[in-house]
Design a protein around this nucleic acid. Structure first.
Length: 802
DNA sequence: CAGTGAGCGAGCTTCCGCTTGACTT
């Protein structure tokens, strides 16, 4: 039996370290935290110095009992969790839970998983740092108090099951604020002047720095240029350089994988996890840009052997982020000589990105020669400017170029890297063409998942391990949606000067189209406004930063954690209580105006089933007339919907005629406009406006759908006409009433299916798990359904008594 | 994929950070 038990947080790490340490050490993992606050309200004893009640969650029981057993048998237990607040707390929880003894327990730390680093750590053990543990407890207690007091306020004042927290509520606020900036934004048009000089290989572009807001001014400029002589007024050539970016942290990896590979932050983390577990990369949840000395040396030898000494430059990076805890290395390949790996294509691509970024970070800078030519115009006092750039040495650009957040900027940057022909001062230039193009100022960009992570990191909010889950949470709660939105067509004017002739034309472009951007929902906006109004301090962008400062003081032993929490909690709790007592229910209600025909009040707000328009006052005892209601459609918001758009909502659903003795109704559902007829549905093609569907069109569409369905039909049953075997997009399936049933793999020929078999398969389908691809997230209401069923007979019993 | 928008009211929801699996369609 090994004399030493060493415990780290991650099992993959444990495996590596075990290889370094030999027989005397058993290396095990705690799988992160092993204890957490109990779920119930008495987790924190507020009156008694915020004393906490912890428990080992069910999924950690086995880990804990195994560690307990091993600890008992070992002579010495080495607590080697990460060197940060959470890691220190994990060590303390282990110490406490496993009943360890001071004399036979040592705390060690390392920032990199290399043999020398581990051995050095073992030679320098210390005790558990209780100041650091206290700082973690303060963090944990504060987050629980905020989350579990704020969320119930929302259940009362907005809607059940909502949530609020120090991190997620600020994330939502960023998105709501940004959306409002976009909506408020007024685009301004101005004419941009671009000239092309020279012919063929010697052609180059020059631009005017100023822009003209009036078309007349742009035209005058072109007219003046028609007769002008152009000459090189000045030439300025100077060397410039560009340096490589630091190796990846979690946040920069997420950003770059989003831009270059189109991955969501969750996908990036999943793929990175697999690379880590396969031993290809170092730990992927890190805020450090630091590389170990062995890694720097390995990168150096790789660079020198591949491209020579000239391309190598050893660099150490420092984090700019004050909140970084730097318990790990930056994300890098474990072996730099593996330029690529075996694996699934997603893994390969992410690995190569990580490899290139890490390698490039140890390479020489790229060198350029940048030329700025000022071009004089004989008839005007302004100058045109031509920029040219020639790469003299590629350096790190041989392997890696960091991309930019702003795609449109990259497009307009084409003039930047252009190569200028040989030019001399005083040289006269031959104008080929000059254009004045109307350009529009752009609103601030909506957040993508990755750019939101970047912003949160800048604000010091959240940690590498929580970025991806936070992004999921705010979407799962319905505060935010990731969506594509269609743009609209916009016209712009172009004036062209060619051969001393000015022509004008109007062109059109698509603008405002968005892909994979985060939009706030109505509920997200209402919750945000409610929190901003009543809990300003918590959703303040600096709240985390200011509590972090205090956690740091606690960690240094300069402040008592219970006093800090007390100072925060008492006024906060007061706010919670007064809000519960005095605040109105938040519905986001907004008056739209009056109905043009009836003169009744029109308003929008959020109801039980989502946002809707109401025409007329709500029914009361005096006012017996019921108002009319209509739900808003996908993409519409109570904040921006107009009276006209609201009126449109009442035009549907409408009956457009009769077919086979049953009415045909046009409506708009979750998947767009459709016709319903005799409990069958037909989607409307995009080119047909749902408001002017004719009876003939509707019949035609229904018949076409029937014909198509008949072609897909493999088998039907005389026992029940609603049961069919059909050919679907992914192969055959059974349609059992409204339920779609998958055919099990052992049935190779669907023609052999009997009615009884179909029925059995349908019965075997879990009742609540039929909706959506993400059954797991939706499966929660199952718990809800159970007590409701229990209640039902009780109600009946009461009814019978009556 | 429809319509629903009163209230009754039990028991439920919820935080942030550390870690991996176990799961469908």
């Amino acid at each position: 039996m090994a004399k030493n038990l060493l415990i780290v947080e991650s099992p993959a790490k444990a495996k590596t370290i075990e290889g370094y340490l030999g027989k005397d050490f058993t290396v095990k993992s705690s799988y992160g935290h092993i204890r957490d606050l109990v779920k119930s309200e008495d987790a924190i004893d507020i009156k008694n110095n915020f004393e906490q009640r912890y428990e080992v969650p069910a999924d950690k029981k086995q880990v804990v009992s195994e560690l307990k057993k091993l600890a008992k048998e070992a002579d010495m237990v080495w607590l080697a969790s990460d060197e940060d607040r959470e890691g220190e707390a994990i060590s303390w929880h282990l110490f406490d839970t496993l009943n360890l003894k001071d004399a036979t327990t040592k705390r060690i730390v390392f920032h990199e998983i290399t043999k020398p680093a581990i051995l050095r750590a073992i030679d320098n053990p210390r005790k558990i740092d209780y100041n650091l543990v206290n700082a973690q407890q303060a963090r944990r207690v504060l987050d629980r108090l905020v989350g579990f007091e704020l969320s119930p306020v929302l259940w009362k004042k907005v809607k059940p099951s909502l949530s609020a927290g120090r991190v997620q509520s600020v994330a939502v606020r960023l998105i709501v604020d940004r959306e409002r900036e976009v909506n408020k934004f007024k685009s301004e048009a101005a004419f941009k002047i671009v000239a092309i000089f020279g012919k063929g290989k010697n052609a180059f572009k020059a631009e005017l720095a100023e822009r003209f807001t009036q078309q007349g001014d742009a035209e005058t400029f072109l007219q003046d240029c028609a007769k002008a002589v152009f000459d090189i007024k000045s030439l300025d050539t100077r060397p410039t350089k560009r340096s490589p970016a630091a190796p990846f942290t979690t946040s920069t990896l997420q950003q770059e994988a989003s831009r270059k590979l189109g991955y969501s932050v969750a996908r990036t983390m999943q793929v990175a996890q697999r690379l880590y577990e396969a031993g290809h990369i170092t730990y992927m949840r890190t805020d450090s840009v630091n590389l170990s000395d062995t890694a720097i040396a390995a990168a150096a030898s790789e660079i020198v052997s591949a491209w020579g000494d000239k391309y190598h430059q050893s660099r150490k990076y420092k984090t700019k982020n004050a909140s970084a805890q730097e318990a790990h290395e930056a994300i890098r390949p474990t072996y730099f000589n593996n330029h690529t790996i075996n694996g699934e294509s997603g893994e390969k691509r992410l690995y190569e990105l990580i490899w290139k970024r890490a390698i490039a970070s140890q390479m020489s800078e790229a060198q350029f020669e940048k030329t700025v030519a000022k071009i004089g115009i004989s008839t005007r006092k302004e100058d045109l400017t031509a920029n040219g750039e020639v790469m003299k040495f590629d350096g790190f650009l041989k392997v890696y170029l960091e991309s930019n957040d702003d795609e449109e900027d990259n497009q307009t940057a084409d003039g930047e890297n252009a190569i200028l022909p040989p030019l001399t001062k005083g040289q006269l230039l031959d104008l080929q063409e000059m254009t004045a193009t109307e350009r529009f100022s752009r609103p601030p960009a909506r957040y993508t998942e990755a750019s939101l992570v970047k912003k949160l990191e800048e604000l010091g909010i959240g940690r590498p391990s929580t970025y991806a889950p936070t992004i999921s949470t705010i979407q799962n709660r319905g505060y935010v949606v990731k969506e594509e939105r269609e743009g609209r067509v916009r016209n712009f004017r172009v004036l062209t000067l060619k051969n001393e002739n000015i022509t004008k034309e109007e062109k059109s472009e698509n603008t405002g189209a968005e892909r994979g951007k985060l939009f706030p929902t109505d509920i997200g906006a209402v919750v945000n406004d409610f929190l901003v109004q009543h809990f300003q301090g918590i959703v303040d962008f600096n709240f985390t930063a200011s509590v972090e400062k205090q956690f740091d003081e606690i960690a240094q032993g300069l402040q008592d954690w219970t006093k800090m929490i007390r100072t925060f909690y008492d006024p906060f709790h007061k706010d919670v209580q007064s809000t519960i007592e005095t605040a109105d229910k938040a519905t986001g209600e907004r008056e739209l105006g009056v109905h043009p025909e009836s003169g009744k009040k029109m308003s929008v707000r959020i109801g039980r089933y989502g946002p809707f328009v109401q025409v007329g006052e709500s029914a009361t005892e005096e006012n017996e007339e019921k108002p009319l209601y209509a739900s808003l459609r996908t993409g519409q918001s109570i904040e921006t919907i107009s009276l006209e758009e609201a009126l449109e909502l009442f035009k549907l659903p409408k009956v457009v005629g009769e077919f086979e003795g049953k009415p045909m109704k046009v409506a708009i559902g979750r998947f767009g406009p459709y016709i319903s007829h005799n409990s069958a549905f037909v989607s409307l093609p995009k080119e047909i406006d749902p408001l002017d569907v004719t009876e003939e069109q509707a019949i035609e569409l229904i018949e076409a759908k029937r014909k198509k369905d008949a072609e897909r039909l493999i088998k039907s049953f005389p026992e029940d006409e609603t049961v069919k075997v059909l050919n679907g997009r992914w192969g055959p399936y059974i349609e059992f009433g409204k339920l779609n049933v998958k055919i099990p793999k052992d049935i190779t020929d669907p023609l052999t299916l009997t009615f009884e078999q179909c029925k059995a398969l349908a019965d075997a389908m879990p009742k609540d798990a039929k909706k959506g691809r993400f059954g797991k997230a939706r499966a929660a209401p199952a718990a809800k359904a159970a007590p409701a069923k229990k209640k039902a007979p009780a109600k009946k019993a009461v009814a019978k008594k009556k």
